[in-house]
């Protein structure tokens, strides 16, 4: 495989020959992928190829049909329920939908993991929460409820919550979706800082090629249930492989099937965009 992988000894996440199906459909067909400790790894690919599914496999919410999923050397699918919950304490995940607790205020949402997993006194929790909220620019919104936030604000709060415990491994599912350019710049910087200062291993799922490339150490491109390319951003940018080129440059016409096989391409684009609108 890739050079970057060979000389990394310490892998935080290892995925080997994983297959996974949803009903009749094979989502993954022999995926191999490693995430070196302390790096920012981006996972890219067309909508619906299973990027979110991959994160759920790493988090143990789904079990692969065959293959190995290891986090910190522990085989996730083999863990018991309580071991799994133990392992998850050192993971953070930003959900694509944000998934804030609607019955708690913004403040309490971010405080939630701290209150449960630490015995910190309330005033310290307050400080920590405000620091996290400040870092996503929403300290002023701490008393609002999720229903009072915009979509972009929602995800920023969710981001603050995901990093509340400063987890060793953090997975961002589309952290830039729905953000204005300024907020996007701030979040990109935040992800980078968290990685550099706390050494958080970060997995980013994103469609925003340029932002992602600017901070990622390593990019995997997934399509059709397989890893079709991987490498450092600049290597990938210069890659000759037509599939990669098509993806990086964002050319609609090419060998990569961006959408689930269907009839006419024009229609597909329309349908695909709608889908991204709702779920993407």
């Amino acid at each position: 495989m890739n050079d970057v992988l060979k000389d990394t000894r310490d892998d935080h996440v290892v995925i080997r020959d994983v297959t996974f199906r949803r009903g009749q459909r094979k989502i993954f067909d022999g995926v191999d992928l490693t995430v070196p400790r302390g790096k920012i790894v981006a996972i890219m690919g067309p909508s619906g190829t299973g990027k979110t599914t991959l994160l759920r496999l790493i988090g143990g919410q789904l079990k692969p049909d065959t293959g190995v999923v290891e986090v910190d050397g522990r085989r996730i699918p083999q863990l018991t329920r309580s071991e799994l919950f133990e392992v998850r304490k050192s993971m953070g995940m930003l959900f694509q939908s944000g998934a804030l607790f609607t019955d708690l205020s913004v403040f309490d949402n971010v405080a939630f993991p701290l209150r449960i997993h630490t015995d910190l006194p309330e005033d310290m929790i307050r400080d920590l929460v405000l620091i996290k909220l400040q870092s996503v620019g929403l300290r002023g919104a701490s008393q609002l409820f999720p229903s009072e936030l915009s979509g972009g604000m929602n995800r920023r709060v969710a981001l603050a919550r995901a990093i509340a415990l400063d987890p060793g491994l953090i997975m961002y599912d589309e952290p830039f979706a729905g953000l204005d350019p300024i907020a996007m710049g701030v979040i990109v910087q935040l992800i980078k800082t968290l990685n550099q200062v706390f050494g958080m291993t970060s997995i980013i799922v994103s469609h925003d090629i340029h932002e992602t490339a600017s901070i990622a150490d390593l990019i995997y491109v997934i399509s059709d249930g397989k890893v079709i390319g991987s490498g450092a951003p600049q290597d990938l940018m210069q890659s000759e492989a037509p599939k990669i080129q098509q993806f990086i440059k964002g050319i609609p016409d090419g060998p990569v099937p961006f959408h689930y096989p269907a009839a006419d391409f024009e229609e597909e684009i329309m349908a695909g965009q709608e889908q991204r609108g709702w779920f993407g």
Partner: peptide, 18 residues
Amino acid sequence: GLMKATEQLSSMEMMGVD
């Protein structure tokens, strides 16, 4: 049901909370 649909249960699980 709504907690499940809005992934609140999933995110709770991912925070290591059962």
